[in-house]
Design a binder for these strands. Structure first.
Ligand code: NAD
Ligand code: NAD
Lengths: 236, 236
DNA sequence: CCATCTTTGTGCACGCGTTCACAAAGACAT
DNA sequence: ATGTCTTTGTGAACGCGTGCACAAAGATGG
């Protein structure tokens, strides 16, 4: 039946709730640690503690994937690692390009956890011609003009943006135009992308401001803050 | 009823919903851009577009702060910048320590947007004695043993962790013990902290995995299946 | 085979967050 | 002053996410 799929409500992924998807990597990390310690099985209670979530939530999350547990025993660690990996699409190779090899881009390129889960850095791109050819994390920096060819040749579908904010939209447009359909944005800008392209953002400044908000509240907790510290400056 | 015994639902901040708090920095950024262009007023529709959110959501968000708009006109940009800054606690100075001055920590120290909103890097700390004294972004790296003294002397309440995962909990414990009550964690680990301490995490690997999940769905959707609900379940 | 014990899987209720839709407020023109 | 037009502020409905609580499933021991 033709269900109304006009726009994307940002949820509803083939029955797996978005909130669950966001936690699967967390479970996977905890399970991988157990696997390395050769732990055969784990209960929802133990795994939930390791992942820092509620055990009922974890069980419900897993129930979306299927009935992979054994009552009275728990979950088989290896089996669950495989199932979650498969569900997340980590059993295949994901070529990634990083655009903007400055302080942050270089750090990302050097990040070991990058390649550890099927993500392979296909290329490092920068507009600064003087960087071209320079090795960063063992890879040569290529000029941004090679973007389209590199994305096409390597079938890159994921792009990471670590350029200044002013260049982020332009880089996004080029990435999308070249065929990239997932973008991880570190620049502090809102990106416009067509339907079908996913954008996730990492913003240090926003995180700090959220912490500051709560910090401020903690500081003024015992004391009643009078609301009168706003002078009568009325808007025009 | 009798079940009203919740410790901390992670929400309920003096009436301002957590989801709203998380968007305030977004609005602030858009408003700051308008302010720099000397735009005097802005409608909820325009500002929402700039911040990438729904206009009704924006208006409701602002309604938690007060009635700062003028019907038929919109919001006074300067006034709103001030109100949001004050609400977020950005009118005061927030000393921050960064622990773990490796690839990422150095990039963070060099990040300009850090100081732009009242966040001041009080110190850079690392366990590697050979780094001590070295200048990063104009600041000398101090040894981790100075942590307690630095936090106390500078009244640091926010700590950023950029150490390897294995050291993150230990660093957290020391930070908390020294008086830090807000932590931004870049290490891929779940941190345990006592009540009253806020932790926010930034995890590149998790973001990529979420993107990969959706990317996988895209790849297997528009191809063969016309409206396929269940695309070929792989047996184990 | 039966009893007991552990742990899963989920029905259910509740609260938060989002969005629609519109009355009210105010600016502005006449 | 009065009418018109724009835009805010919010009541209400709805859907998603969370967590409780428990029946069912299955392991284990006798
Ligand atoms: N450094 C951090 O810790 C940090 C933290 C949060 C966010 N950010 C954001 O990440 C981005 C990068 O930060 P950074 O500190 O690495 O800056 P940077 O100036 O060190 O690096 C930016 C790089 O992007 C390149 N570049 C500029 N325009 C380009 C274009 N059109 N195409 C390709 N490359 C281009 C530059 O040549 C430079 O090498 C910024 O948007 C910054 O706000 C950085
Ligand atoms: N580099 C990235 O782009 C990136 C991205 C995501 C997450 N991370 C995470 O951020 C962390 C840092 O990454 P990195 O690439 O900068 O690693 P790195 O090895 O370059 O730097 C780690 C630094 O921490 C210091 N350190 C180790 N133990 C310490 C301790 N007990 N106290 C104080 N300092 C200590 C080390 O001396 C080193 O300088 C890691 O947990 C990594 O997984 C990094």
């Amino acid at each position: 039946m033709a269900t109304g799929r006009s726009h994307r409500p940002a949820t509803r992924s083939r029955g797996i709730p978005e909130a669950t998807v966001a936690r699967l990597p967390l479970y996977l990390r905890a399970l991988t640690a157990l696997s390395e310690r050769s732990v055969p099985t784990v209960s929802s209670e133990e795994l939930a503690a390791a992942a820092g979530v509620n055990s009922a939530k974890l069980r419900k999350d897993f129930s979306y994937l299927g009935s992979y547990g054994t009552r009275g025993v728990g979950y088989d660690v290896e089996y669950l690692v495989y199932q979650i990996s498969r569900e997340l699409g980590l059993t295949q190779d994901w070529p990634v390009v990083i655009v903007g090899i400055g302080n942050l881009g270089a750090a990302l390129a050097n990040y070991g956890g990058f390649a550890s889960r099927g993500f392979r850095v296909a290329a490092l791109l920068d507009a600064d011609a003087s960087l071209a050819g320079r090795l960063v994390a063992g890879l040569p920096v290529r000029h941004i003009d090679e973007l389209e060819a590199i994305v096409a040749d390597n079938q890159v579908s994921i792009g990471v943006i670590a350029t200044p904010a002013g260049a982020a939209q332009e880089v996004t447009d080029r990435l999308v135009n070249a065929g990239v359909t997932s973008i991880l944005n570190f620049a502090p800008t809102v990106l416009s992308v067509p339907d079908g392209v996913d954008v996730r953002k990492v913003d240090l400044s926003i995180e700090l401001q959220i912490l500051a908000f709560h910090e401020q509240r903690k500081a003024g907790e015992g004391r009643q803050e009078p609301d009168g510290d706003v002078p009568a400056v009325m808007p025009a």
